Computed example of a mutant assay.
Amino acid sequence: MFRFESPQYLWLLWLVVVLVAVRYYSLWRRQKKIMRIGDKDLVRQLMPDASTMRRRVKFWLTMAAVAVLVVVIARPQMGSKISNEKRNGIETIICLDISNSMLAQDVAPSRLDKSKMLVENLVDNFTNDKIGLVVFAGDAFVQLPITSDYVSAKMFLHGISPALISTQGTDIARALSVASSSFTQQQGVGKAIILITDGEDHEGGALEAAKEARKKGINVFILGIGSTKGSPIPVGGGEYIRDNTGNIVMSALNEDMCRDIARAGSGTYIHVDNTNDAQEKLNDELSKLQKGETESVIYSEYAEQFQSFCIVLLVLLIVEACIMEKKNPLFKHFRLFKK
């Protein structure tokens, strides 16, 4: 497995783009100055030893050297030792509602942010378990395939927002269907779908999808977040989403539907509020699931690969230094550069 130890330095590659832009701007200025002196072809005849192609090759060699130097700074590494670790745990797929209604703030700081904190705390409690992440609104897709890499799980979690899905709405059935097909094929392992939503199902079919999951041996837990009284949905600048008549839209938690889905999926409904009760109840429910042997591929050692890139960098610099901007009299019989 290839990786960069310090990938943040790869942003320095934009320096190459800037230098290229400066280069072409300088060439444009140079052409304008030459045209002031006289005819372009005549000026070229006055400088018979000058070579446009040589300058061009030297410049691109320099840019390649800068790019390779940035890669060296980012510390490329290659996984040198692979081990298959066997652990006893469960498999869990988180289905996170990212529809606009999850921006409501009846749960602090918002329904979506509270959900993220809940999932992050859940991951912190995992040891030998696997976790996957599905996000949904009017559609659903796998944000993180099932894995035991908890660091990646948290990284993907932080980048979630309603902007990830352009189709708004709440299609719980689609989310459950995508999650059900995202588990591994290992037998004897407890499998759970944890669906976090405010319970506004706009598409229908959620009960049937939960029953299908139960037939596959998957327990469906529903975490309903928000107030049953309803809350406005902020859009920024102190404004809220309004309907066609100009009235503020109130998003309310549909607990009855959440309970029905959990019951159909042989799971439990848990209400999420501003306390930590939901977290404790969820941990208790997951601890009851059967733990089975899961297998994970782990890259336990990484070898530095910057040495190879340093050799390439050195070769580029040597070649660039050996190429003169004007024709070399020692090699006048060799026509590597036509211009």
Rank of each mutant, 00 (worst) to 15 (best):
D243A: 09
C95V: 13
L133W: 09
E301V: 08
G199Q: 06
K291S: 09
V107M: 07
I193W: 04
M155F: 12
I218A: 03
T245V: 13
A264Y: 04
F4M: 09
H202C: 01
K332G: 04
G238V: 06
F306S: 08
R259E: 15
E212D: 11
F136W: 05
L13H: 03
K338T: 14
T52P: 08
E239I: 02
M53S: 14
L96H: 05
V272Q: 02
R87I: 12
E255A: 11
Q187V: 14
L13P: 05
G190L: 07
R30V: 10
G237D: 04
Q186E: 14
I146M: 03
F156V: 09
E200P: 08
V123R: 00
D129Y: 00
C95E: 12
D139Q: 13
K32E: 12
F136C: 00
Q307P: 02
D284F: 15
I37Q: 06
I98P: 00
K81M: 14
L69A: 15
V57E: 00
I233D: 02
V235W: 06
T294N: 13
E120M: 10
V66P: 03
I222S: 02
D113V: 12
P48F: 08
K338N: 09
T275W: 11
E293K: 10
M53W: 13
Q279L: 13
I270A: 03
A206W: 09
S227C: 11
G89S: 08
V68L: 12
V249F: 05
S80T: 15
C322Q: 13
G89F: 05
R87T: 11
L133R: 03
T228L: 03
L19C: 04
P48G: 06
R3M: 12
V135P: 00
E295C: 05
L13Y: 04
K154D: 04
L317M: 14
V178H: 11
G89Y: 06
